[in-house]
Amino acid sequence: MRVLDAVASARLRWTTLVNRRDPRLEVNDRRFALVVTERRIEARDQDVVSLRLAAADGRALPPWRPGAHLDLELPSGLLRQYSLCGDPADTRAYRVAVRRIPEGGGGSVEVHDALPVGSPLVVRGPRNAFPFAVPGYGSPATRIHFVAGGIGITPILPMIGLAHRLGVEWTMVYTGRNRDTLPFLDEIAGFGDRAVVRTDDEHGLPDATALLPGIGPGTAVYCCGPVPMIAVITRAVSEIPSIEMHSERFSPPPIVNGTPFEIRFASTGDVVEVGADRTALDTILESRPDHPYSCRQGFCRTCKVQVLAGEPDHHDSALTAAEREAGQMLVCVSRAEGGRLVLDL
């Protein structure tokens, strides 16, 4: 029996060895190592850098579609999301672009200053929170209009490329403070007069008419950029029938009709108050600055905590019904139904 057991165990180990898949390329929550193979300055003000990321052995990478992003595990331990802005047909490399924002929590500064060519980097994904449905290929719209604000061009670039290759009718307005701050102007110029570049120093702050020229029924609008710009567009398209509205922002959503509540830390008993105009995450970070977070928009799950008492008011788009029932909560966007939550951090 011992001999048979040894033979069976050896056979099992051999079968596992020859049939296993590379754990770095798992489809579910895949996490794998890449290397920075190229860095480029993409804006005249020197504040936008793009990174080309590839596997050290040159293997094909998991596929992605326009609108997808990567989670980058930075050397400091920070986890940050950046949109893929290269060509989905390039199966050997990813491209991301990052604007330096000194007050933005350190992620962008670290990408600029601590990731030279040759740097190893662990990434997760790709995942898509901003999917692109092409007219005639999953969307009832007949044409597309893109609006990009500054670094918001990154998820829009692959969408433009795909729409252009498929012969779909499309237009775009690309806006920012001035031309020196806008990345990828050379690539945008290659699309001709379909893409209009509009800057604040030349034309003033844009209104809905400037951002949505000629928009009517049957149009799918895709916009990415600052919250005020998206708010202007959302209000305008809500008054036009038969419009598709798709958007992604690079900053937390505004708190609307918020009410104050308290958080009690289960481990210490300390109680903190969350103001009506603040998030639970902001308040937690004041006393627990090492608490993990990333997207601040309720989709990456990094800030997930366990609720031991109280009723959460969920505003995320990531947790399943079972996870919510089990008492899990994303503190970057969700709040309390009552006066107090007891959290296990």
Rank of each mutant, 00 (worst) to 15 (best):
V3N: 06
L4D: 14
A8S: 13
A10T: 14
R11M: 14
R11I: 14
R11V: 15
R13T: 08
W14K: 13
W14R: 15
W14C: 13
T15D: 13
V18P: 01
V18Y: 02
V18I: 15
N19R: 15
R20N: 08
R21P: 02
E26P: 02
R30H: 12
V36P: 06
R40Y: 08
I41E: 12
A43D: 10
R44N: 07
Q46P: 01
V49E: 13
L51Y: 12
D57S: 08
D57Y: 09
G58H: 04
R59Q: 14
L61M: 04
H69A: 10
D71T: 14
E73D: 13
S76H: 07
L79V: 15
S83F: 08
S83R: 08
S83H: 07
S83G: 07
L84T: 02
C85K: 07
C85E: 07
D87K: 09
D90C: 04
T91V: 15
V98Y: 05
I101T: 11
G104R: 02
G105R: 15
E110K: 08
E110N: 04
H112I: 03
H112A: 12
H112Q: 11
D113F: 04
G118Y: 11
L121S: 06
V123N: 13
R124C: 09
P126D: 12
R127V: 10
F132W: 13
S139P: 07
S139C: 12
A141P: 13
R143P: 03
I144Y: 00
A148P: 11
H164A: 15
R165K: 07
R165T: 11
G167E: 06
G176T: 10
R179W: 05
R179C: 07
D180G: 10
P183H: 08
E187R: 14
F191S: 07
G192V: 02
R194L: 07
A195G: 10
R198N: 05
R198S: 13
D201N: 12
H203T: 12
P206E: 05
P206T: 06
D207K: 01
L212A: 06
L212S: 07
P213S: 04
P217E: 15
G218C: 09
A220L: 09
V221F: 05
Y222H: 09
P226Y: 00
P226T: 08
P226E: 09
V227W: 11
M229R: 03
R235Y: 02
A236G: 03
E239T: 13
E239L: 14
I240V: 15
E244C: 08
V256W: 06
G258W: 05
I263F: 13
A266M: 01
E273D: 07
G275K: 02
A276T: 01
D282C: 01
D282I: 00
E286S: 10
D290K: 08
P292D: 03
C300E: 12
V305W: 01
V307K: 00
A309R: 01
G310Y: 05
G310K: 06
E311C: 00
P312T: 03
T320R: 11
A322R: 11
A326W: 00
G327Q: 00
G327E: 00
Q328N: 12
Q328F: 15
C332D: 01
V333R: 14
S334N: 06
R335C: 03
R335A: 08
R335F: 03
